[in-house]
Design a binder for these strands. Sequence first.
RNA 1: GGGCUCUUAGCUCAGUUGGUUAGAGCGCUACGUUGACAUCGUAGAGGUCACUGGUUCGAAUCCAGUAGAGCCCACCA
Length: 895
Amino acid sequence: MAEPTDAPASPAAPATSTAYDPTAVEPRWYAFWEEGGFFRADPASGKPPFVIPMPPPNVTGRLHMGHALQDAVQDALIRMRRMQGYEVLWIPGIDHAGIATQNVVERELKGEGTSRHALGRAAFVDRVWDWKAEYGDIILQQKRKLGDSADWSRSRFTMDEGFTRAVQTVFVRLYEEGLIYRGDYLVNWDPENRTALSDEEVDNVERDGFLWHVRYPVVDEAGNETGEHVTIATTRPETIPADTAVAVHPDDERYRALVGRRVRVPTTDRLVPLLADAHVSPEFGAGALKVTPGHDKNDFEIGQRHGLPVLNIMNPDGTLNEAAGAYAGLDRDAARERIVADLEAQGLLVKTEPYRGTVPVSSRSKAVIEPLISRQWFVRMKPLAEPALEAVRSGTVTFHPQRWANEYFRWLENVRDWTISRQLWWGHRIPVWYHTTPDGEIDEGRDFVVSVDQPAPGMVQDEDVLDTWFSSWLWPFATLGWPDETEDLKKFYPSTVLVSGYDILFFWIARMIMAGLHFTGQAPYRDVFITGMVKDKLGRWMSKSLGNGIDPLDMIEQYGADAVRFSLVLLCAQGQDIKLDPSKFEMGRNFANKLWNAFNVFGRFMEEGRDYRRTRAFEALSLVERWMLTRLNETVEAVDNACARYRLNEALGLLYDLFWRDYCDWYLELVKPAPGEAMDEEALALAAEVYEGMLRLLHPFMPFITEAMWHRLRPRGERDALVVASWPAANAAETDVEAAQLFELIQAVVTGIRSVRSQYNVPPGRRIGAAVSLADAELVPALTAQRRIVERMAGVEALELGTGLAKPAAAAAVVVQGHEVFVPLAGMIDLDAERARLAREIAQKEGFLKGVEAKLANEGFISRAPEDVVTRERQKAADARAELEKLRVNLSDLG
RNA sequence: GGGCUCUUAGCUCAGUUGGUUAGAGCGCUACGUUGACAUCGUAGAGGUCACUGGUUCGAAUCCAGUAGAGCCCACCA
């Protein structure tokens, strides 16, 4: 295998540009991994399995930031476990996305001046397959740009042959178990796509509308109007022709006498009963409700209770049918207008008031949903929900963060039957067959047959297809070959963790748990990690219509995939939504750049092709080296701990500090040689050792640059790759807490001295004297041995150490961890000028304070000024006193 | 109507089972380009942890309530 090279030909050659360029590095290393087969899982492996089912993106989908976030999380987990010695499998694939895909191809046909109806079913489905062949792989290609280490050889499609078999098996089995039934019920009807939808596919949106108050004339036994009226309130006057009753509350005194009588439905001659039902709210409107069982869910239930007829006045396309009498043929909106106008003309419209209420719309087409009676297939959910509830209650499945379990419980406890049939052409055909009459019509008089294959000549298959989720809910095991007992299924089922957004908790996650338990007897995964959703910088959903989307591919182009992943994971805290702005990726880019450049500090002294290895024991290392290794080992432990709790942002934050703060700002600054000098081999070996440790730890989060640097760091064999290198283990033997504490004291002393230098504007190159008066005599020898660190990092000439030292004249003093640090300033700065400057500032401040105090002493001010103004003045005075105190100390420091 | 989440520095947000002086990135101020990195370094300014009360030796953290923002669910037409 040819190994890519990113390094200049000679390691010692000065780089012309110091900025890291990911576009030159990332594609080559992805090819290296893929060609090396590092992502492929082996069912025969003896290693413990670690499996993540990738939520399959829609075949029509383009990579968006949500994918980028979730893939960054999943890939980090996958890569980490791979390095930890698990047999990992990340199963990728594509969802056929029934409605979405059918719509896309239909739009294409429309552009060509034709339609699916003109093409016919078989030709249309062929056309969709063609479309899939051409575009279906795009999103998986895009995912490779992110660096996803999925096993592409196992990529699946929810309508491939095996999946079709799984879906059919499941349908037949559920039917035989009595968990699938067909019936005429009120379903959510999308008049635009002309299909039924499940409850989860319907959004309730608030809209401004009107509430119409309509009088229904009361009639006597003979059917003649008595002159009495009942006034109902409705937001949907177009459904009046379908009314089969008017209802009032049983305890409503106003109507007690009228209950049992009949009323005439306006716009029709129909006489319907006035009945009492507890569902009616006496406070709403005039307390009477028109009952329309054919077009309203609640009314349907009232109708069931009272044995009312169900009238359907609507066609599947949203126009009114013959049952609507004079309004037949009108669109539902036009019908509303006409009916309101007619009511007004007849004097039956009492009033019209503005009303804001919720309207059900299709989550996909956005069309207003029409509750419509139709014959559909349903899954009985209660029996499936019980075990799924128990699995989470008992801890067999754990949610992270845990609060999502509550949402899950609430949904499952109130779950309703699932409408699974869709009046589409693209999807899994329902495996049900009907006898036909001699003229080719379905013979409703004879029983249908549930069967995968045509049971008898002449029988025709159900026209409908299944809801897309009816295949996706089988994802974790159907992808592994179920219903066959495959090697993959034995090794890799159940999965370990599912990573997903909360938006598909009910659609997918809950249903997968139900399906897994029911069909395999095992929950499909142990953990569910719910991520937040990626929003725009104002917290709005990213959408095409708002044009506020941030394209991950653009961001990868601009900042690099490592940077995109790094920033997303760092921002992904415990299920909180991410408000994203492109500038956030600068964080990741800068980090990658720093990682790239840090290597040069020691890498330029390394001979090409040589493998630098430490020979010294830990105890023989310098203080800074022991501190560095201690920090590394502590961080390994903390990172492992954070990742076990799915706190990847925390883990990455720890690595950020380890690399930037500890390794670059302190360790490298101390071990890098002075100009003209070189680093010795032991120092090089240790610098490389720590750097390599960090590459391993960072690899799950930034796979590309770490792999590239890992190969530059040492000579590697052909099959060597960081992607399969071992994960660092926290080494207790190379952890020295005391050394770390001593080094931290030194850091504090250095910072204290730097602070003084900065405050007094000591020129940067100027070496100064300093003394530390330690509170603890035992520290004197320890610190004396390390004085060179302070001298180098703080620009100190000769550090004096002792206990009970007196503060020299003309010196600044700071207290550090209870020790006193003195910095003589004589000769370092112009003392007279500094004294004069301080004196000037003190005088100025005193004048200001005097003014404020005078104001506060003025009783007129105190009594008349608003309280907050007085408070602010008091605060000003306090601040001024504090500043004065500081300045006076500074002045006295100078003697 | 029910439930959930959020409110911490100018901005965007972390903050592990309550425990020293509440942190980061960006922005801001001053200084700095001597051989890693200006996509950088050093130092610094900046916080009533929304508000009120309670528990505690001790509260950003736990409890109760209030206010504001957002999300999910639900059959007041």
